[in-house]
Amino acid sequence: MNIEAKKNAKLDEVTVSTKPVFEGKVISLQIDTVQLPDGSTASREIIKHPGAVAVLAVHAGKIVMVDQFRQAMGRCELEIPAGKLEKGEDPLEAAKRELQEETGYVCKNIRLLHSFYTSPGFADEIIHLYVADELESGAAAPDEDEFLELYELTLPEAEAAIGSGRISDAKTIMAVYALKLKQVTGTYGL
């Protein structure tokens, strides 16, 4: 079975109107009225996001992570380095920038692992997940409102952090399991 992104006339919804509700620094919210395949209409609440990058950075066999307070969760979260795309920014360059800003590391080798939508039921945010190695240390330069602590975890430590809930965001979980797949099979599987 060939699965690819495509339109399906039996399932497609057609946007009839869009009502902007909120315009923020990072996201915006709109309510779309759509025509359903059976001809009826429905409302869809949509969060628009500029997209983001995340980096599975491996240094001396360990996963480079940052600890950061996340207001939406009300607690700190261990995560791989990540950040939003600036308007018109190339995701590869953004990944290198975020890695350096958050951790101080620069990489000699970086490649796209996969791009994925975070919550397609209500948001258009796409994250481009990169894998980086051959890291060289340097000076971190986080954003002025960003307070981070750097950690380097072995794969078993990262898996234990997932098990305890210390790591609970999808991009970091995906990155940890991609590295595990690489260690078991020799490939990231994508």
Rank of each mutant, 00 (worst) to 15 (best):
M1R: 10
I3R: 12
I3P: 00
A5G: 02
K6W: 02
K6Y: 07
K7Y: 14
N8G: 04
A9L: 13
E13A: 08
T15A: 12
V16S: 05
V16C: 07
E23S: 14
G24Q: 09
S28Q: 11
L29G: 11
I31S: 03
D32H: 14
V34Y: 11
Q35C: 10
A42L: 11
I47P: 00
H49Y: 04
A52W: 06
L56M: 13
V58I: 15
M65E: 07
M65V: 09
V66S: 06
F69S: 04
R70W: 15
R70K: 10
A72P: 00
A72D: 15
A72Y: 14
G74H: 02
G74P: 01
C76I: 00
E77K: 00
K84R: 12
L85D: 08
L85G: 03
K87Y: 12
K87T: 12
G88C: 05
P91L: 06
A94R: 06
A94Y: 09
A95L: 05
K96Q: 14
E98Q: 14
E98F: 11
E101R: 13
E102A: 01
E102Y: 02
G104N: 09
Y105Q: 04
V106H: 07
V106L: 05
I110V: 15
H114R: 13
G121T: 13
F122V: 06
D124A: 07
D124F: 07
E125K: 10
I127G: 00
Y130C: 09
E136V: 13
G138H: 08
D145Q: 10
E149G: 02
E149W: 05
E149D: 14
Y151P: 00
T154V: 08
L155P: 03
L155Q: 09
P156A: 06
P156Q: 05
A158T: 03
E159G: 00
E159C: 00
A160D: 12
A161Q: 05
A161N: 06
I162L: 03
S164N: 11
G165Q: 09
K171N: 04
Y177G: 01
V184C: 01
T187F: 04
L190C: 01
